[in-house]
Design a protein around this nucleic acid. Structure first.
Lengths: 159, 159
DNA sequence: ATTCGAAATGACAATGATTTGCATTCACTC
DNA sequence: GAGTGAATGCAAATCATTGTCATTTCGAAT
């Protein structure tokens, strides 16, 4: 049965271990599993923010045989968030979106987003200084721009 | 039964009609009902953003006898939104919040918000120029400030 | 390579939030 | 004041998210 049977460590271990994500998952102190690799790979390759819905659907579509469970994806994302591998935010549409957190920018790196009123597409903007951003966004060809700025902090009462 | 009985038009019609909100509701082409008046009054007097949960609870507490139905509040807010009387946004916490839309500033008026990481309190900021806002927020006594800026517009593809 | 314990997974149930359907009540016009 | 269509309240349906638990899998130690 050499053709049919591959040991599990071969069949899955290989494909997992060869992914560039594998190292990161291990480095974060997490077990290396197929689902985790797939989720992280997806978030990494997709440069924009993804909803859970989008993640589950893309993972289900990409490989016919592997159907990923919603519960598992929820938990995986929670685990990744706790481990600092991904972050999540809520944009104006109210949907919670997950995003790969590039290790190199770990600490204070934050960026902003432009979303399209019509198609809902979301792009990220690297600059942080606000005026520059506005220009940058315009150069990207966006029209009818409006913006939303939200501060978060500790109020006087809570200080 | 003069004490017990008031005709409906007296009992409700009066209190409704005398509210400063009544006129606005009529002006928007909507029927004048007790629930609508109460919801709009609440949103108007509360200067900050309210979740549906908060709206229902405050209306239920304020007047013992009148219990407002969740469904009705949902529909009332939808109606108001369609009519342009209120607007809704989602802040970082992901909760959908409703806000009275001042008629006088109708068109391009927009403002920003500061929310407290700890107590969740939300205040609105009238200025729009971003640097001024940052200063203003600091003067309000907020600490550990971080901010989020989000643009919305039409992307090149959709133009 | 095999075994073992702990953790991850997937199927399903449970919860919570929001929406829908429908019968009743109410606001507004005549 | 009566009639009509819309608004309301209740119950049931739907959708998203979380919890439970038996089974499977990972990774360390043999």
């Amino acid at each position: 049965m050499p053709i049919k049977k591959k040991s599990k460590s071969e069949a899955k271990g290989n494909s997992n271990a060869h992914s560039p994500c594998a190292e990161e998952i291990r480095a974060a102190g997490l077990k290396l599993t197929p689902v985790r690799v797939k989720v992280l790979e997806l978030l990494k390759q997709e440069h924009c923010l993804l909803t859970i819905d989008e993640i589950v659907k893309r993972l289900s579509l990409s490989e016919g045989k592997t159907k990923v469970d919603w519960t598992t994806v929820y938990r995986t994302l929670l685990t990744f968030t706790d481990a600092g591998l991904v972050t999540h935010t809520t944009l104006v549409d109210g949907a919670l979106r997950y995003e790969y957190q590039h290790a190199s920018h770990e600490d204070h790196h934050h960026h902003h987003h432009v979303s399209c009123k019509k198609c809902g597409m979301i792009e990220s903007i690297d600059a942080c200084e606000i005026e520059k951003i506005q220009k940058q966004v315009e150069k990207m060809g966006f029209r009818e721009l409006s913006h939303r700025l939200e501060f978060t902090g500790v109020c006087p009462k809570c200080s």
